Amino acid sequence: SKWSPSQVVDWMKGLDDCLQQYIKNFEREKISGDQLLRITHQELEDLGVSRIGHQELILEAVD
């Protein structure tokens, strides 16, 4: 995926409302499409996504 960080942010805006709070962290870390495809629970935790349910929603959406 050749998504830029801004495309990742646009994609996140289409996800569940409960995930919108994390967008600024993804933006700050400039998460690209390639990074998103390989993202782990630990990396999500580092991005402030501490709730497992929220991590799962992001990982499922990526899949």
Rank of each mutant, 00 (worst) to 15 (best):
K2F: 14
K2R: 07
Q21A: 11
R38T: 12
R38V: 07
L44S: 02
L19H: 05
I31K: 01
E43N: 11
Q20M: 10
L57E: 06
L59Y: 04
E43C: 07
L47E: 02
L47C: 05
L44M: 06
E60Q: 14
D10Q: 12
K2S: 14
L44Q: 00
P5Q: 07
Q20V: 08
Q21K: 09
Y22W: 04
Q20P: 02
Q7T: 05
V9T: 11
H41A: 13
D34V: 10
S32T: 15
N25G: 10
Q20A: 09
I52W: 10
D10F: 07
S1L: 10
Q55L: 00
D10T: 09
S32A: 12
E45V: 11
L47D: 01
G53C: 13
S4T: 13
D16A: 06
E56G: 08
E29A: 15
E29H: 14
L47N: 02
R28A: 13
Q20S: 10
N25S: 13
R28F: 06
Y22R: 03
R28N: 12
Q20C: 07
K2Q: 10
D63T: 13
D34S: 13
D46S: 13
K13E: 07
D10W: 06
M12L: 09
Q35I: 11
L44A: 02
M12A: 04
E43W: 05
L47H: 02
E43A: 10
K13S: 09
K13N: 09
E27V: 08
D34T: 11
Q55S: 05
T40W: 00
L59S: 04
E45K: 15
V62N: 02
E56L: 10
P5C: 15
L47V: 06
Q35Y: 07
R51D: 15
E60V: 06
S50A: 11
V8F: 01
L59D: 04
R28E: 11
F26L: 03
S4I: 05
S1P: 04
S32Y: 08
E27F: 06
H54V: 00
L44T: 02
E56R: 14
G14W: 00
I58P: 04
V8K: 01
L36N: 01
V62L: 08
F26I: 07
C18G: 09
L15C: 05
I23H: 06
D10G: 11
V49K: 00
S4G: 11
R28P: 01
E43G: 11
V49D: 02
E27W: 07
Q21H: 08
F26D: 01
F26A: 02
Q35V: 09
Q35F: 07
L47I: 14
L15Q: 10
M12F: 12
M12I: 10
E45L: 13
G33T: 04
L47A: 03
G14C: 07
H41M: 11
Q42W: 02
E60G: 12
K30M: 11
D17R: 09
I31P: 03
R51T: 15
L19S: 04
E43K: 14
H41S: 14
G48Y: 00
E45P: 02
Y22T: 04
C18N: 11
I58V: 07
G48T: 01
G53S: 15
D16W: 05
P5V: 13
S50C: 12
D17V: 07
L47G: 01
F26Y: 01
G48E: 03
L47M: 12
D17A: 10
F26P: 04
D10A: 10
L36C: 00
G33I: 07
S4A: 01
I31L: 08
D46H: 14
L57C: 06
I52Y: 12
E60H: 11
S4D: 14
S1E: 08
R38F: 06
L57V: 06
I52E: 13
Q55R: 15
Q20F: 09
S32V: 06
V9H: 02
D46Y: 09
H54G: 01
H41F: 06
D17H: 09
T40I: 01
I52F: 12
V8A: 02
R51Q: 15
H54Y: 01
K13D: 05
K30W: 05
E60W: 04
F26W: 02
I39M: 14
V8C: 03
D63L: 10
H41T: 14
S4N: 14
T40V: 01
R28C: 09
P5S: 14
D46L: 14
L44F: 03
G33M: 08
N25H: 13
D16L: 03
E60I: 05
R38I: 05
C18V: 11
R38G: 11
S4Q: 03
S4W: 00
K2C: 12
T40E: 05
N25T: 14
N25I: 12
C18R: 07
I23V: 14
L37N: 10
G53I: 10
I58W: 03
E45A: 14
Q42A: 12
L47R: 03
D46C: 09
L44N: 01
K2M: 11
D17S: 13
I39C: 06
L59I: 08
V49G: 00
C18D: 14
D10I: 08
M12N: 00
G53D: 15
D10R: 10
D34C: 09
I31G: 01
Q20N: 11
Q42G: 09
I52C: 10
G14N: 15
Y22P: 03
I31C: 00
E45R: 14
Q20T: 09
I52A: 14
Q21I: 12
Q7I: 03
K13R: 14
Q42P: 08
I58S: 03
Q21Y: 06
D46W: 09
D63M: 08
P5L: 05
L15S: 05
S1G: 10
I31R: 01
D34R: 12
L36T: 01
V49Y: 00
L37S: 12
L59K: 08
R38C: 09
Q20I: 08
G33P: 01
D46P: 02
I52L: 15
Y22C: 02
I23M: 07
I58Q: 03
I31M: 07
P5A: 13
Q7F: 03
I39H: 04
L15V: 06
L15D: 03
M12H: 02
M12D: 03
D46F: 11
G33W: 09
S1K: 15
S32H: 07
R28L: 10
I31N: 03
Y22L: 01
D34E: 15
S1A: 09
Q20Y: 09
S50I: 05
D34H: 10
W3H: 02
G14M: 06
K30A: 12
V9W: 01
W11H: 03
I52S: 13
R38A: 14
L59P: 04
Q20K: 10
